[in-house]
């Protein structure tokens, strides 16, 4: 199963805004969704998701971004990606 940010999502992170060192991203489903905030580890998972891939790809990428052992975060990443799919900020597709 592959995951990616849904087609109708607009988002910005602190990298786009010169906004400081704390990982933070804001997103919405356009045009009618509410603004949503992910900060800290949630933002790191979002940035890992932005490149798309399997849950394992996303976990490894998030671990690299946060300089953490992938085994320590695997379950949390899976939970968050699952929630993002539920609220339709992320899409999952069979490949």
């Amino acid at each position: 199963m592959h995951f990616r940010i849904a087609d109708d999502v607009a988002w910005v992170s602190q990298d786009d805004l010169d906004g400081g060192d704390v990982p933070v991203a804001y997103m919405t489903r356009v045009p009618g969704g509410p603004p949503i905030l992910l900060e800290g580890s949630g933002c790191i998972v979002w940035l890992a998701l932005a490149e798309g891939g399997t849950l394992e790809d996303i976990t490894v990428r998030a671990a690299e971004l946060s300089d953490t052992d992938a085994d320590l975060i695997r379950d949390d990443v899976a939970d968050l990606v699952d929630q993002l799919v539920v609220i339709r900020l992320a899409d999952e597709e069979d490949r």
Partner: peptide, 18 residues
């Protein structure tokens, strides 16, 4: 609830989708 700069970026995208 959302910083001005972030809101403005998202708002441009909302308008473009419309």
């Amino acid at each position: 609830h959302i910083p001005v700069a972030a809101r403005v970026h998202l708002s441009h995208a909302v308008v473009q989708q419309l």
